[in-house]
Design a protein around this nucleic acid. Sequence first.
DNA 1: ATGTCC
Length: 481
Amino acid sequence: MITGKDLLDLGLKPGKWFKDALEHINAHGLTGDALHAYLDTVKPAPEIPLLAQPVPFHENISADSAVEQANIDYVRQSMQLLMRTPTVVAGAIMPDACPAGPLGTIPVGGIVVARNAIHPGMHSADICCSVMLTNLGKTDPKTVLDAAQQITHFGPGGRPEGQQFTLPADIEAEFQANPFLKSPRSLKFAHEHLGTQGDGNHFLYVGISRNTGDTVLVTHHGSRGPGAALYTQGMKVAERFRQALSPATDPPNAWIPSDSPEGEQYWAALQTIRKWTKQNHLCLHDALSARLGVAVQQRFWNEHNFVFRDADLYYHAKGATPLDPKFMPDITGPRIIPLNMAQPILIVEGTTTGNNLGFAPHGAGRNLSRTRHKYSKIGQTKEELFAAETQGIDARFYFNQIDISELPSAYKDAEQVQRQIQEFNLATTIDEIRPYGCIMAGDWEQDAPWRKKKLAKKAAQLAEQQDTQADCSALQETAEE
DNA sequence: ATGTCC
């Protein structure tokens, strides 16, 4: 009679599998070689350890201030932890890199390449956050922005009944067919959130092309509820695999093996969310051009939070713009890199180099966390800051509440970021869309009870911090883009 | 990121 203790004595890891295995062993009277041969077929695979050394990664970023140096130090430390994840084979950070989450989490402006593995924690919570551009010819920009304000939707939740866009039948069918997407909650979001932009750094921007003088619309938002729901499910499944395969791996870096049934379904779900998100931009752009009675001259888009596949390699981009055509199935133009509301949006193209892994930055990146930026402006009113920072542009907040953490001073210096794009040969700017104006959500939650409590606590905390170390710890809450 | 907890 073989018992659990015998299996333990053989150095096997206890688990639910013991029960069935012992039944089988004793029913067949297995011993010796037969026992070992059987155990080899049922015992769990050995745990995968972290890599002994971090895989080297490309640093396409340089500091021009103490704050930026502290930012880089934190991001570098995070990457060095992350690059020991056993699936990882390459990585890079971009000039817009900034911390997101606890140490060891992929930063914004980060690219991580893994073999045969999809890491939901590495494509960001806002799956397929993206930018779309439509050229509206010589239409008056104020007319465009006024109409856009009537059509778009910012803030939490979806569109009220009667004001919803129609979800195309093929996208709905893909939701229904995928176990990651077919929940009533997910489908409800898919219908109600279509044609919505959410909040935070998302925007609707109207500007003028440097090259042609044409009026151009650019929207920035992601996959809203449907994407968030997929991310939550993906992290759960990845966590189960982590516990079984590699408990040494940090939970934020858990992965789903790409060749498992779950991996194949998750990959398919990502492609469906990409379609949904493209439609989320399209329905706004189409409604606007129809309202204006203007023919669309040119339209292109790109995602900057996603997973891109090249054979068995999965490129995870959390705030990085794909340049290489192998990453995008539906290219209709160059790529789009916004900087801040008062600066031009860059239109770029580029190729894969030795240091960019086929990507460019996705924006300017934050120089301070939202809270810390707000704290740094204490003593100035929101109205003063807004007036000073949006001079000459028609900047609007959907909820009429100024969000100072979205003003230009919240972001890294745009000139500096552009210099670094050149310095590291990341992309070539072929046009720029100069700002007429924009709409962002604004501070819709400023009066929410949970905010007041949180803000008071954070302000007290920040007031006590004086050294650089403290600066770093305050940086890590930056996580959204 | 997300009706700020399925």
